[in-house]
Amino acid sequence: MILDATVITQTLAAATPVLLVATGAVFGERVGVINIGLEGLMVFGALTAVVVSVATGSPFLALLAAAGAGVLGAAVFAAFAIWLKRDQVIVGTTINFLAFGLTGVWYRAYLNGFGAGKTATELPDLIGQGAGGVDALTLLAFALVPAAHYLLFRTRLGLTIRATGEVPEAASAAGTQVNRLRALVTLFVGGLCGLGGAALSIGIANSFTEGITGGRGFVALAVVVFGRWNPVGAMGAALLFAAADVLQFTLQARNVWAGLPYPVFLAVPYVLTLVALAVRGAKGKSPAALGTAFEQG
């Protein structure tokens, strides 16, 4: 018996971090910004959430702080990639280094300081309890999907975002401050990345570990491609990834194919993501101005 209610709620929980980040990244890429540093922004959020949760005992304050940390990290990205017009892939990579390094320093200081021996207060479940519970962040992540879809396709702001990622000159001629819009969206995406990190550290678990994100920021980018730069499509892809994740975990836990060492299972989501990209890759058409700097005339 592999499919039961617990598996479903676990899948939703596992999808939450990827979905939050991917929903943001849909906007980021639609406006023309590719940010490899989402992974790092998640790490920032994850640690911030734990530290604030331990310090205040309030998981909701922790969420707020995590989003703030993501925004702060994204500001560094925006400064270099949008303001100084450096290559977005390289700036994103740099953000990852910065995040891994700074959280490493901070985490050690925290463990040796007031965090010693404490666990963070987890996000409470709003529906159900324990393994079958669904917390506020999961609800938020899924509630965001229709909202994001509406924003992107049924508002002037969404229209402007889509135009900016395709023909920034046209958006500019229509009165859009292209680089300002890109920076604002980047900050917004950063906030969602922070929440995505918090979903891992105080949503699914109650602690921070180094490498906690396990490439989920990168997977989120793949999810955006697979979901055709569309919030609903991204949700489907994120659920697929999460299902693979939960499935491999469940198979391990129930000793199915006990002869196989566990790394085989751990590799499944990444391999699946690669296969998905390969299948969808040739058909996907990214925003035309993705990753290019815009020179305001």
Binding site: G215, F218, V219, Y270, T273
Partner: peptide, 10 residues
């Protein structure tokens, strides 16, 4: 960018 990053995890 994506494929090489994911291949690292694999």
């Amino acid at each position: 960018v994506l494929s090489t990053l994911l291949l690292n995890f694999v």
